[in-house]
Simulated scan of single mutants.
Amino acid sequence: MLDAVLPLQCGGCGAPGIRWCDWCAAQLAVGPDQPRLVSPRLDPGVPVFALGRYAGVRRTAIVAVKERGRTDLIAPLALPVEAALQQLVRWRLLDLPLTLIPAPTRGSAARRRGGDPITRIAAAVAGRHRGITVAPALRMRAFARDSVGLGRGARERNVAGRVLLRRRRLPTGSGAVGEVVIVDDVVTTGATLAESVRVLRTAGLPVTAALVIASA
């Protein structure tokens, strides 16, 4: 009856009667050569690894989570993020323990979405590993615009000085932070990542890399 009122569709391809199909899961699966190093137009000062391009199933799923309230896609998106982190540890590009810090988002956007999707994705990953914690320690100062549609220069100006650190959200205890990885859904110009790295490093936090679900 519920499906008749609100038809259930795959969050990737739109197939009816299923939330997330096997075909879409395979499209997001992390291959032996992934994640791949990408080069945003603005260098954030750390290596940026992406699971794939912002297109196809990946783009559709990200938009569905962010703009259509498809929180049921948090787990399917968390799985490739988890696999990518494990791969980076195997390659010895990262070492445990890790602290995942979600890239900052505007408070109004988070409220509209019922919470920040990337924080939920990072929390889902951390919940499965003792050596990984998530710390939503960055926030965007009020009046920052939505970056969609902004060019490189406008994005830089939009985030300059507007990314703030919430120290109380960081893990406590000696060595509790470990290596820091910034996690985000999409990287475009790299402006938000660059400002986030600057803020964290100014606070003395060892930012090692950034991991994004998609690169545009």
Rank of each mutant, 00 (worst) to 15 (best):
L8D: 12
C10R: 03
C13K: 08
A15E: 11
A15I: 06
R19W: 15
R19A: 15
R19E: 15
C21Y: 12
D22T: 13
D22V: 12
C24A: 08
C24N: 07
A29F: 01
V30A: 05
G31R: 14
P32S: 10
P32W: 04
P35F: 01
S39G: 03
S39D: 12
P40G: 11
P40T: 09
R41L: 14
L42G: 00
D43A: 15
D43W: 14
V46G: 05
P47A: 06
V48T: 02
V48P: 03
A50L: 00
L51I: 10
L51C: 14
L51N: 04
Y54M: 04
G56N: 04
G56Q: 01
R58G: 04
I62K: 02
A64K: 11
A64N: 14
A64E: 13
A64W: 10
V65N: 00
V65F: 01
D72F: 04
D72E: 14
L73M: 13
I74A: 12
I74D: 12
A75N: 02
V81G: 04
V81I: 13
V81E: 01
A83Y: 01
Q87S: 13
Q87T: 07
W91S: 07
W91K: 06
L94W: 04
L94H: 11
D95G: 14
D95E: 15
L96F: 11
P97T: 05
P97Y: 02
L98W: 07
T99K: 11
A103D: 02
G107H: 10
G107N: 07
S108H: 13
A109T: 12
A110W: 06
R112C: 04
R112I: 02
P117L: 04
P117E: 04
I118C: 10
I118Q: 07
I121C: 05
A123Y: 00
A124S: 13
A124T: 08
V125F: 11
V125E: 12
G127K: 02
G127M: 02
H129R: 10
H129F: 08
R130K: 08
T133Y: 00
A135E: 02
P136D: 13
A137L: 09
A137Y: 09
L138F: 07
